[in-house]
Design a protein around this nucleic acid. Structure first.
Lengths: 247, 247
DNA sequence: TTTGTGCGTTAACACAAGTTAAATTGGCAG
DNA sequence: CTGCCAATTTAACTTGTGTTAACGCACAAA
């Protein structure tokens, strides 16, 4: 029943866990993939966790009739696959490069080895908790917002993630995803994405031209995605030495 | 580079991890909650993992304007909260009993202690992977199916989960969720759920009366939720001694 | 220059889903 | 039995989104 000091010890463990995990990743070679390169295929039988270093990628699930759902958008500093690297097979999903990407791969075996360190195990669990939190927000957006709100939530979400990882400082960034991808992520159609972006441009909320996103009215955008809770779970974000990792 | 025997060792570790995790849960007292009881509140500051023993519950996110999204439906034998028990605070979500429930609680502290055992850590990660997999399917359903397909996917999903845990044997079960809850889970309105259920009854696909779900045409239902990939990730489901746990 | 080709834009129309409101049902406390 | 209350059902109407199809634009290849 050592109540005091608990939270402090926890975050300390998380920090050293993060350090070890990152070190393991950084020991792996840097892979690269061109736009549309399939980084993980649906029938992949060699599970591994990935740390993204540069470029955007997405995780998608293709339905037999040709439609697909985008499950997750992956940006630099994101880690994915920690969970199903432990399970036997892959997850039926694909991971595809949205533009030129580079990333590092941690084999399931190496991950299992690392997990023997409780600090790493905790950090891994925390990472999954953060991912879950992002998914929760996205799910709320998808189930309860119309197209405008969903797009607002998406643009804001990416903005906040980039900013939190110190990849950008001003409300402007590069979004190398086609509108068709956005549509499959948001549960609407390509055509409707285009329509809605025009409306939002006319409202002077945001300007999306090709891959460039310029947020004109941050508060307005927040209102449009009204009620989406903030990004953080409550845990402090890991301090990111952005030079070491994100460049 | 010990390639052979790897998968076997992995699943063996998962089994003992499961055993230890379950033992820890079973050592905790059995809590109960009446219908609509708030098991975890949005501002909860004492994170814990939960193992559900009897009854249904749901995890929800309330938006400031009164709307809400149901993030997850929890059935007996489900474990939730493993991730955010590790993170500092709660997850901004609520967990509410849909009917009379009983469950066990594993404090974050106890969980952290248990996680020092790598086998437990692996099993915990595997559990989160399974949960993620379910969410992926649900996300695909929500983004790409119409109301009929979403309802089909939901009814099938619950059916398969119940059957996998040997809680039922025939395609009939009790679903103690109001249509309003289903609507908030599926991203449609209560009224539309009712309409669609009528249509599906007329099609002789499924019969939903009050809380009773009777699947009339399993194949037809599968077709309606066409393209939703199967429940399992590829890893064998944990053997469940249903008497010990689920009763 | 010409010819692709992949993406984005726009419009017209069809249809699925939301909204509102009223009626019905069933459970349950008195 | 009565009356209340929550959940469900149904209808009429409105609105958001999907569908189809045509066109424009940038960029690369020939």
């Amino acid at each position: 029943m050592k109540a005091p000091g608990y939270a402090a010890a926890a975050s300390e463990d998380l920090l050293t866990g993060e350090l070890l995990l990152r070190r393991a990743f950084l020991a792996a070679p840097l892979h690269t993939g061109a736009r549309n390169a399939v980084i993980v295929s649906a029938d992949d039988r060699a599970p591994a966790a990935l740390l993204f270093h540069r470029g955007f990628a997405y995780r998608s699930l293709s339905l037999p009739d040709g439609r697909r759902a985008i499950l997750d958008i992956l940006i630099p500093t994101d880690v994915t696959g920690l969970d199903h690297a432990v399970l036997g097979g892959g997850g039926n999903h694909e991971i595809v490069a949205a533009n030129a990407v580079s990333y590092r791969r941690l084999s399931a075996q190496a991950l299992r080895e690392l997990m023997k360190n409780p600090q790493v195990a905790l950090r891994v669990l925390a990472l999954m908790g953060e991912a879950r939190w992002r998914i929760d927000r996205h799910m709320a957006a998808i189930t309860r917002f119309d197209a405008r709100g969903r797009i607002a939530a998406l643009l804001l979400g990416i903005y906040e993630r980039l900013r939190r990882n110190e990849l950008i400082s001003r409300p402007t960034y590069n979004l190398p995803l086609t509108q068709e991808l956005l549509a499959d992520y948001l549960g609407i159609t390509m055509v409707h994405v285009s329509r809605t972006l025009r409306r939002m441009r006319e409202e002077r909320l945001v300007l999306v031209d090709r891959q460039v996103v310029i947020i004109l009215d941050l508060e307005g955008l927040r209102r449009a995605a009204s009620g989406i809770p903030p990004l953080n779970v409550g845990a402090a974000p890991m301090p990111q030495s952005s030079d070491e990792l994100a460049l």
